[in-house]
Design a protein around this nucleic acid. Structure first.
Lengths: 144, 144
DNA sequence: GAGTACACGTGAATC
DNA sequence: TGATTCACGTGTACT
């Protein structure tokens, strides 16, 4: 219960943080184009071709930040709100999780051996959890 | 053995990737300053004052990328080399790890109950692993 | 050749 | 103050 609460707190803290950083700059919409490009065709409604790339890039940045803050929300014990620190904390957290998993697994093996010693041929319930990486919910089109 | 190998492969893949992105632009050293600022003092060895901020910012970017690629090296099953995807994969991975931890813990409880049923008063070895977040190796100076 | 992802330098904001 | 972090728009490279 407690950890869930804390998680949520972290979530909103980060959200507010990033919002206050992002929306401060945007102010209003990006309809205002800084410069029109070339005297190409005055016929085609003065289409702002440059703003396409701008919005695209702006979107890329936004997405990365969202992901970053989502990551941040998952990690307890955050040192700073800094982007780099967020990633670093995530790294530390993953390492801790792994370490713990190893320990826990050893514990299980221990317990099982105890049981087996007392009851040879004991049948355990489910399959043991898979060894390396849990599950692959997405398929990777990884480059060759 | 296999997972370690794969981890390392991931590591170097990412390293090469980021290097080919970064060092391509830098080319040579940043000793070449794009513009000198003001005719301030021809006496003081033509010190490039503007390059200070530039190098600083460049460093910030580099640090974030290094962290990002370190994170990437930790995560198996990468979908894309994209920065945003790296973070997303890390998120998924953390969630999987947690999920697994829960399952494993339940398993332990199960095994223990089995043992205790057969041997009331059985004494287990070490302490059970801590409940929420493993350890706090760093102290947080978190902003108010 | 449009689409995608990136590094870059700069000005602003926060402490 | 100055240090630090950020978002921004632009140019470049790879597909």
């Amino acid at each position: 219960m407690e950890s869930i609460d804390e998680e949520f707190r972290n979530y909103w803290e980060t959200l507010m943080f990033f919002q206050s950083e992002e929306l401060l700059h945007n102010g209003c919409v990006s309809e205002v184009i800084s410069r029109f490009n070339g005297p190409s065709s005055p016929d085609t409604a003065a289409l702002p071709v440059a703003s396409k790339s701008i919005d695209l890039e702006r979107n890329r940045r936004k997405k990365l930040n969202e992901r970053l803050f989502a990551l941040r929300a998952l990690v307890p014990k955050i040192s700073k709100m800094d982007k780099a620190s967020i990633v670093k904390d995530a790294i530390d957290y993953i390492q801790d999780l792994r370490e713990q998993e190893g320990k826990i697994r050893a514990e299980i093996a221990e317990l099982e051996s105890v049981i087996l010693k007392k009851n040879p041929g004991f049948k355990f319930e489910g399959e043991r959890s898979p060894p390396a990486h849990p599950k692959s919910k997405r398929e990777s089109k990884a480059a060759p």
